[in-house]
């Protein structure tokens, strides 16, 4: 059956992998919250600094899932892991910054423009892992398990053996990131509506 084998919740002040806190924001630090995580986990991928916030969040959450679950992705060929991501505001945060570059700072910035599409994070994860599989980014009003279940079913029947799914909302006012891996296993939390809703809220459980 399809099982959720790993997941990461990245919120405004803490980051959890499989329900365990792996980073907590230091409000006194001069580094951005995402850079704090990058440094704490000694990730070495200088392209990280060039990414916009959506790509940084997607990159961090996918790397942390891999780190906490060694061997997780090694079982698959380079095109067998499909990426299914969604959010509510597309790339609005980077769109705003690009608009600022030509309205206020005088020149449209090419390095911002290339991030003004929500699916760029999929490209960044594909590049970082050399994954050639299926990619899809949808814009939904809110996190909807049915979207991942429906499309996951389709991709699984057309050759993708594992799914890396994500809800990726990073705006000026909040961070709500939930990445999860779906694989074929005998046991474990089923890839189901209720489990997705519950795990997407994992922050509350750990904060108690």
């Amino acid at each position: 059956m399809k099982v959720i084998t790993a997941y990461c919740n990245l919120r405004a002040d803490r980051c959890l992998v499989n329900g365990e806190v792996v980073a907590e924001r230091d409000p006194a630090s001069e580094d951005s919250w995402f850079k704090q995580i990058y440094k704490k986990h000694a990730l070495a991928y200088p392209k990280f600094y060039k990414m916009d916030v959506l790509s940084q969040a997607g990159y961090l959450a996918s790397e942390l899932i891999k780190k906490a679950n060694p061997g997780l992705v090694d079982a698959y060929a380079d095109d067998e892991i499909a990426l299914i991501f969604a959010n509510a505001t597309s790339s609005a945060e980077t769109d705003r910054r690009f608009k600022q570059s030509y309205e206020e700072a005088g020149t449209p910035s090419p390095s911002l423009f290339v991030y003004t599409l929500p699916n760029i994070v999929l490209g960044e994860i594909a590049i970082a892992n050399k994954w050639y599989g299926e990619n899809m980014f949808a814009v939904l009003p809110k996190f909807a398990p049915g979207f991942y279940l429906d499309y996951g079913q389709i991709l699984s029947s057309s050759g993708s053996r594992a799914l890396l799914c994500g809800w990726l909302e990073v705006t000026a006012t909040g961070t709500d990131v939930f990445l999860f891996m779906v694989e074929e296993r005998e046991t474990g939390p089923a890839f189901s509506h209720d489990n997705l809703l519950q795990l997407s809220q994992a922050r509350e459980a750990a904060a108690i």
């Binding site: 001069e30 580094d31 951005s32 995402f34 850079k35 991928y45 200088p46 392209k47 990280f48 600094y49 060039k50 910054r97 910035s109 390095s111 911002l112």
Partner: peptide, 26 residues
Amino acid sequence: QLNLEDLTVADIADDALLFNDQGLGL
């Protein structure tokens, strides 16, 4: 110019290769 506000001046060595993946990865 490159919107790298996550970096500080101290993060960039004088001789770091800007366009190398081990450098700044531009």
